[in-house]
Amino acid sequence: MTTAARAPRDGRAAPLTVGVRAEGGRVRLQARGELVHGCADALAEALTALPPGVCRVDLDAAGVVFLDTAGLTALRTLSEYGRRHRVPVGATGWHGQPRRVLELMGLDPVDPLSGGLPAGRSGATASAVARERAEQLDVLRLEIAQLRHAIDSRPVIDQARGVLMAAHACTPEQAWDILREASQRTNTKLRQVAAAVTASAAPDGTPPPEPLGSALAAAVRRVSTAARAPRESCDRSPARAGRAAG
């Protein structure tokens, strides 16, 4: 048997299903989807439909992908069923975001019902979800800042690559390797390395400061040597030697 939560207005199935599997007196409830508003009703319906003589009820939460403040209500529904019918209950299989929320709430992420569910934790649940979302927002803000920095840095980096390509007859990829290697050698941000290269190409420009200048020169030599090696190897190949001897 499967019970689906129903949206309060349009009757469409909400993103949660509760499957029921009974083996003897043990019942296993398999929850799939999101534990959000209205989902406690779906769990209550599944529990109400259980036959008499049940000796244990376990909720398998491995299929739960999101948990919000309604999650505690669902767990309390299961806990109250156990008290009314005097049967042990459990809720295991938590992972990902739901497990993180349980940890923030101070509950056992393996089985939050194992030690008994404290009363009056709705505020704590809301706080836990708020902290979870705040952490996710911080990560997104950092990614946005990094993307903006990359966009702002792109023009000067492209200019520096053009300067290196003209000065050393290298490819765009080789120019990139030179900038990156100089950045790593001197622990200097790539944008600063590119700005120094671009500034040095101006009519009244000055060479990059040390040790950046030495690092750039070393990177140019390494890239040039690496580019010559395949050509020299081809020049010394047996096929070419045979043709030259003939």
Rank of each mutant, 00 (worst) to 15 (best):
L190K: 05
P207N: 07
D177K: 15
L147Y: 11
V156C: 05
A145S: 15
P172K: 08
H149F: 08
P211W: 00
L179A: 01
L212K: 02
R185Y: 01
I144W: 08
R191S: 11
Q192S: 13
K189A: 12
A167D: 13
W176G: 07
R161F: 02
L142G: 13
R185H: 04
L142M: 10
T186M: 02
L142P: 04
N187H: 09
S153D: 09
N187E: 09
K189T: 09
E173M: 14
M165H: 03
V139K: 10
I151M: 15
W176Y: 12
H149K: 11
V156E: 02
E210P: 02
G213Y: 05
P155V: 04
L140C: 13
I151R: 15
E173Y: 13
G213V: 03
H168G: 06
E181P: 02
C170S: 09
A166N: 13
N187M: 06
E173D: 14
A150G: 07
T206V: 11
C170E: 08
T186K: 01
Q184T: 13
Q146F: 05
A166T: 14
G205L: 06
N187D: 11
T186W: 01
R191F: 03
T186Q: 02
L142E: 14
V197I: 12
L140G: 10
L142Q: 13
R148K: 09
H168M: 08
L142A: 14
R148Q: 10
A167M: 11
L147Q: 15
Q174H: 11
R180Y: 08
L212Q: 03
L164V: 06
A150Y: 03
A182S: 05
Q174M: 11
S214Y: 04
D204P: 04
S214Q: 10
L140T: 14
H149A: 14
L212P: 00
L212D: 01
V193P: 00
G205R: 05
D158C: 12
D158T: 15
G205T: 05
T188R: 04
A175L: 04
L190R: 05
E181D: 15
A201N: 07
Q174Y: 03
K189G: 13
I178V: 15
W176R: 10
A199T: 04
A169N: 13
Q184M: 11
P209I: 06
L179Y: 00
A175R: 01
R141H: 12
E181V: 07
T186N: 03
S153W: 00
Q192D: 13
L190I: 11
A169G: 14
A166H: 12
A145K: 14
A195T: 10
I178M: 07
A166W: 07
I144C: 09
T171Q: 14
V163P: 01
T186E: 02
T171A: 15
T188D: 03
S200K: 06
D158F: 05
A160Q: 00
A195W: 01
E210T: 04
R154V: 03
P172S: 12
A145M: 14
D152C: 09
R141S: 10
A182R: 00
P155N: 05
I144L: 12
I144M: 09
P172C: 10
P209C: 05
A182Y: 00
A167H: 12
